[in-house]
């Protein structure tokens, strides 16, 4: 670390000032406002604002819709994490082998992540179209019964989880792949000499090496997926009934469809508290990961 003088401090803060001001103004202040306003009843049309104390909070805790959305949020989170991490690791392992066209395959696998959310949602909605969709065509072609992919439960939830995971799993692939490439080849050679099978090589050599990175990825993805709005909203709008309504969608619905801004903000605050737990876990896990010293 460089020597630090008073002048340096001043210069440093000057450089940091724009960032701090913008973060404070555009996130810090709104965040405080969000918390404050969650104690008010706010009607957007009449702009009537009444202090109601904890009423918004008691209201949401008594509301079965809130608990359903809460549960949905965790189903969505667990399903997405399982699929994208599982799929991501498998694909990373496959792409780590030497094979024909590996470079191209590694590029192609990135596409879903780089596709705009809207485009991804629309393409899937078209592929899953009830009558003309290619998915149902193939499905029926296999002799199976026509399926409503997006408008019955639990299909809708499964479908958004699959599409959501499809969209983000390249992130897992690339991150894991980077780690895989840094595992010393000697470890495998040593295991081979010991007569370890491929399977036990994976568990005894690969897994310990990527465990740290994986735990960081899992939490990072958990934090991001927990707050996902766009994809679910564009795919199902939260339906059928409230089958795929997660907390962010409930916030939107309360605020802009039911005009209960205060209640919406109370839900948002609860959501943030949940995320704080995830963030705390993330910090701990990063602290334990030796590869990421600088995080502290």
């Amino acid at each position: 670390m460089l020597p630090s003088t008073l002048r340096d401090q001043a210069l440093g803060y000057a450089l940091l000032a724009p960032s701090l001001l913008l973060l404070g103004g555009l996130l810090g202040w709104p965040l405080i406002q969000a918390v404050l306003l969650s104690f008010y009843d706010m009607h957007p049309l009449t702009r009537r604002v009444i202090y109601v104390g904890l009423e918004n909070y008691t209201d949401i805790f008594e509301d079965d819709m809130f608990w359903r959305a809460f549960a949905n949020n965790f189903v969505w989170l667990a399903g997405s994490l399982f699929l994208q991490i599982g799929g991501g690791v498998v694909v990373a392992l496959l792409l780590n082998r030497t094979f024909i066209g590996r470079g191209i395959a590694r590029s192609l696998i990135l596409f879903p992540y780089l596709m705009p959310v809207l485009v991804a949602a629309l393409v899937w909605r078209w592929m899953l179209d009830d009558i003309h969709g290619i998915v149902n065509y193939a499905w029926i072609g296999m002799g199976l019964k026509r399926i409503d992919w997006l408008s019955t439960m639990p299909n809708a939830m499964v479908t958004v989880i699959v599409v959501g995971s499809w969209r983000v799993f390249p992130f897992v692939v690339i991150a894991v792949l980077a780690r895989l490439q840094s595992i010393p080849q000697q470890l495998y050679e040593a295991a081979e000499v010991d007569g370890a099978s491929r399977w036990s090589q994976f568990w005894d050599v690969t897994m310990p090496q990527i465990a740290n990175v994986l735990s960081v990825i899992v939490l990072l993805r958990a934090i991001w997926d927990f707050r996902e709005f766009d994809l679910i909203f564009l795919m199902t709008g939260g339906g059928p009934v409230i089958g795929t309504t997660t907390l962010p969608l409930l916030v939107y619905k309360e605020a802009f469809e039911l005009f209960k801004m205060g209640k919406a903000l109370a839900i948002a605050v609860v959501m943030m508290l949940c995320m704080l737990v995830l963030i705390a876990a993330y910090l701990r896990s990063v602290r334990n990961a030796p590869a990421s010293e600088e995080i502290r």
């Binding site: 996130l27 202040w29 709104p30 965040l31 406002q33 969000a34 306003l37 927990f226 707050r227 709005f229 907390l247 962010p248 916030v251 939107y252 605020a255 801004m261 919406a264 903000l265 948002a268 605050v269 959501m271 943030m272 995320m275």
Partner: peptide
């Protein structure tokens, strides 16, 4: 931070 939380403010 979840976008939806600060959207309104």
């Amino acid at each position: 931070l979840p976008t939806t939380a600060v959207l309104i403010p």
